[in-house]
């Protein structure tokens, strides 16, 4: 009896541990833990990974069409240094992004926030999609009303001749 319950306890402990490990693999949860300061980044690789993740989201303003992570420019390396220092100082991702926006504006973000000045940017594609669907529906409705004109007997014969007398040609 006690042997059996011990084995059961051990098994459930193992299952519990495994599920906790799985939970840790969920990126959102990791982020939430990091934001709460529960899982403080330890060691350089962790810091560099966070620097890179944030740098992917920031536009290099001196080089057109590159993120700070992709760029080798001195502007980008300064930005990365700044991000690294802020991470070391215990700032969370939100605070770091706010720091950048305060200085460089929303343009520095690759994913600008939805607000009154950017609604066209975010909503524009959907607006165009809806308008095109309405246009297409109207077109199709109009087309459905039309019927193909019947061929007259002479037109039919002419068509058969042009198509190389396929009709009745069974050989």
């Amino acid at each position: 009896m006690s042997m059996a319950s011990n084995a059961w306890l051990l098994k459930s402990a193992l299952v519990l541990r495994r599920s906790l490990l799985v939970l840790l693999l969920i990126p959102g949860l990791q982020q939430a833990l990091a934001a709460d300061g529960m899982a403080k980044p330890v060691g350089e690789p962790v810091i560099e990974a966070r620097v890179n993740k944030l740098a992917e989201e920031l536009r290099c303003l001196t080089c057109m069409g590159q993120s700070i992570a992709d760029s080798q420019s001195s502007f980008s390396s300064d930005m990365k240094r700044e991000i690294r220092d802020m991470i070391r100082a215990g700032k969370n991702d939100r605070e770091i992004m706010d720091f950048m926006v305060q200085r460089y504006g929303d343009f520095v973000l690759y994913r600008p926030p939805v607000k009154s000045t950017t609604w066209l940017l975010w909503g524009g594609p959907f607006l165009i999609l809806i308008l095109s669907l309405i246009f297409l529906m109207l077109k199709l409705k109009k087309r459905a009303g039309q019927t193909a004109a019947e061929l007259t007997a002479t037109e039919h014969q002419e068509a058969v001749r042009l198509l190389g007398k396929r009709e009745g040609d069974h050989s």
Partner: peptide
């Protein structure tokens, strides 16, 4: 000018 980014400052 794509280099001219309006400053939030």
């Amino acid at each position: 000018n794509p280099r001219e980014v309006p400053s939030p400052l």
